[in-house]
Design a protein around this nucleic acid. Structure first.
Lengths: 155, 155
DNA sequence: AGTTTCCCTATAAAGTCGATAGGGATCAAT
DNA sequence: ATTGATCCCTATCGACTTTATAGGGAAACT
């Protein structure tokens, strides 16, 4: 699972917007708050506008606002909009991957993998993130110290 | 989670090798059996040899053999060797991702996500795949019809 | 020797990633 | 109507990754 800088920036920008409920937030202010290159962030905000996550207002008191309620915005929604499908096998979706008889079990692996990825990313919303917390089931997974260890590549 | 063609080919090649226990298997034979471009597969087998998954033998009756017992080779091992770390946030590991206070919950999401990815990919071995099956916990996840549905990107 | 097979290096087109730059369009306030 | 702020659009760019293809060298076996 590769989370691009773009997707990471997008989520952080949305978190900032979730905190600014009264007035629109300028892209420059978001960039400063989250230490994101301003022009790069502008491109990301354009994507978020086109995909319906934010609205924009030009002019003196302009800026960006959330368009949807934070409780309704899943992390999965944002990642799909910015990075594309959560799970991709050779450029296609898991259920389209075709194998000969000997390798057929691979498809089950990819489908189960997608389930487990969705179980995290569809369960966490922008409201959770803005509140600085995650759902209990997600938090429990992070309690095992092993969860924080890197498993190195065998060489 | 993006599974590259290379990683998919690598797993399929290893499955073929798991079935050929008596004699070495030529790269050409593997390529034909799994419909993989031959020269591309040769490069992949070189990677698999350098990372200790296979051994090779040149000459008339040469070819490739598994170097490790299929029960000990996890899908996660192969993916890490071919595609790099399973979970990567902006080019680094989840535990190295740093956020300001407002966005700090994001790190928990990435760590939990990695746990769920590992729970699938470290649980399935080459022995499972070669037998055409997956562990019960993995199989159960694929039984829900919802697991086979694509969740489209919001536009 | 000769044949077979792996092994190594080079090449390459296409696409993605992470930006940067410049200026145009629009809005609100004056 | 002017001004200034802000978003918006297009273009560009270098580095890297992906998915290969091609040609021949090195080693092993008969």
């Amino acid at each position: 699972m590769r989370i691009s800088a773009k997707a990471d920036y997008a989520l952080r920008a949305l978190i900032e917007l979730a905190h600014a409920t009264e007035a629109p937030l300028r892209s420059e202010a978001i960039a400063a708050a989250q230490d994101i290159p301003h022009k790069f962030l502008e491109a990301i905000l354009t994507d978020l506008r086109k995909t319906g996550f934010v609205t924009s207002q030009r002019g003196g008191d302009g800026g960006y606002r959330l368009r949807r309620a934070p409780e309704e915005v899943q992390v999965a929604h944002v990642l799909r909009a910015i990075d594309g499908p959560l799970t991709e096998i050779r450029g296609g979706c898991p259920e389209d991957a075709t194998y000969n008889e000997r390798a057929s079990a691979l498809q089950l692996v990819w489908v189960a993998l997608r389930v487990n990825i969705r179980n995290i990313l569809e369960g966490v919303t922008l409201a959770h993130l803005a509140a600085g917390s995650v759902p209990k089931e997600v938090a429990e997974l992070t309690e095992d110290p092993e969860a924080w260890r890197t498993h190195w590549i065998i060489r």
